[in-house]
């Protein structure tokens, strides 16, 4: 791998609370994620997986360490970039455990809204949304409201939304937890396809042992600290 990592984390620590109530959610975590790879984050409940994902997504400010996203140093003891939402909008796609589609928008609008927020015209956003929906095989559900979608369909729409602005990084927190193993496999296939075809770095938090063999690498967290990585036999 001669390419530079898209996500480069060095010595990140994060704790909640102070004194006896203090919880060290992340202790001196370092991590590199390269373009075109799908990386897994595992570990017991409370080990800090979501916390790490939130730090990478610039939603949560760590207490120390440094972080480089797509070559830009965004955190070094403090945020170096003011417009974190703008950064997220352009560079990062989020996929949640519960799909988190906006209930008042239909499928294609849910995808288009991310594009519109990034400044696209409504017409442009719509055509991009429809393109993504067909890429993910849910085009015929484009006019359905979130409440009318099955779990697998909703999750694909959510993936389409995460991809709307061609992000360099896709962060997924237990994206398959609500799906049966067949659909979980299909979602993982899609994430793999995205990584390969778009050179995106995909980071997936999961408990789900059934999909462990789908990752290029799996990192394990325990009590906020990173254990030695398990390279997957390809």
């Amino acid at each position: 791998m001669a390419e530079l990592p898209i996500v480069e984390i060095r010595g990140i620590s994060k704790h909640f609370g102070e004194g006896p109530a203090r919880v060290d959610a992340l202790r001196d975590v370092s991590l590199d994620v390269f373009p075109g790879t799908v990386v897994g984050l595992r570990g017991p409940s409370g080990s800090g997986k979501s916390t790490l994902l939130n730090v990478i997504g610039c939603i949560l400010e760590p207490n120390s360490g440094s972080m480089r996203l797509n070559g830009e140093l965004v955190y070094d003891g403090k945020w170096l970039r003011v417009d974190l939402r703008g950064l997220r909008l352009e560079k990062i796609g989020f996929i949640f455990q519960a799909h988190n589609l906006l209930p008042f928008l239909n499928a294609w609008e849910n995808v288009a809204v991310a594009r519109i927020l990034a400044g696209a015209s409504p017409a442009q956003a719509k055509s991009r949304a429809l393109e993504l929906l067909s890429y993910l095989g849910v085009e015929r559900r484009k006019d359905a409201m979130p409440g009318e979608l099955s779990g697998g369909e909703a999750q694909r729409i959510a993936i389409a939304r995460a991809l709307a602005n061609d992000p360099r990084i896709v962060l997924a927190d237990e994206p398959t937890a609500a799906l049966d193993s067949q659909r979980a496999g299909a979602v993982m296939d899609l994430l793999r396809k995205v990584a390969t075809e778009r050179r995106t770095a995909v980071i997936v938090v999961t408990h789900d042992e059934k999909i462990f063999d789908r990752f290029d690498r799996i990192y394990s967290l325990r009590d906020g600290a990173m254990e030695a990585p398990h390279p997957q036999a390809a």
């Binding site: 909008l89 949640f96 809204v113 991310a114 990034a118």
Partner: peptide, 13 residues
Amino acid sequence: KKSIATLKLIGAP
């Protein structure tokens, strides 16, 4: 609430 949080997360100003 959840929708607004999602919009912020995606990056809505």
